[in-house]
Design a binder for these strands. Sequence first.
DNA 1: GCTCAAAATGCACCCCATGT
DNA 2: ACATGGGGTGCATTTTGAGC
Length: 233
Amino acid sequence: MLKAVIVDDEILAIHLLEAMLMESNSVDVIGKFLNPLDAYTNILKLKPDILFLDIEMAEMSGIEFASKIEETAHLMDIVFVTAYEHYALEAFNVQAVDYILKPIDKERLIKTIDRIRQRRGKLGFSANTLLDEDIKIIGSFHFHVHSGRVYIANTSLVLSTKEFQILFFLAQRPGQIFHPSELYKLIWAEDSIGQTKALKVHISNLRKKLESASGHQAKIVTVRGYGYQLLFE
DNA sequence: GCTCAAAATGCACCCCATGT
DNA sequence: ACATGGGGTGCATTTTGAGC
């Protein structure tokens, strides 16, 4: 049974998430906090496996909270729960294992829990194990967030920062099509203002690297007039 | 802290594919 | 045939990191 702590400044959101976690029969909620400052002082004692964290809180943002937690010796899997998708990249920069949008979909939550359990099983670590780097398994990819490396089919892919961000973003949403300007905005966190040439160059480089490493296990497909999507074989 | 080299990123241009 | 969208290449600029 995984131990979880929920931090959210809305009591209803906490109750809803707690109920869903209890129904999953695989997660035990050992702490609930409305105030992130209270949570911070207690979380090191509780030593949870998973931390469900709201991003938009009055006293301290979830991103800021996660950064503070990262500085401690105890590593836990952080799952951000928010109503806003634009926080996604920032969230993953602070070791988020997953990112769930409100209103929470129960099946999506179960998948997240399963993935965390699988990951912990694979890596063989318990709640108090210190990892060298955070590994996120998506499809046939293993993303090593801290080193910026990606492993696919036992082959290591060396990517630049932007290439990693693009691939990481697309891999989390396989089959979903993103218009170049939309993708640019999400990765660069600013409007492309019609300038997506840079993105095209990175996509081109990624394709070459993906093909040499994985053959056709995963590829970035252009849907003419609509955008790019990542497909797994 | 400075310098220099390497890597990353961005941009311009050209070519190709597709739709009309 | 033409217009448009997309991909590839080469070069310029910026950023990063190592060495001193």
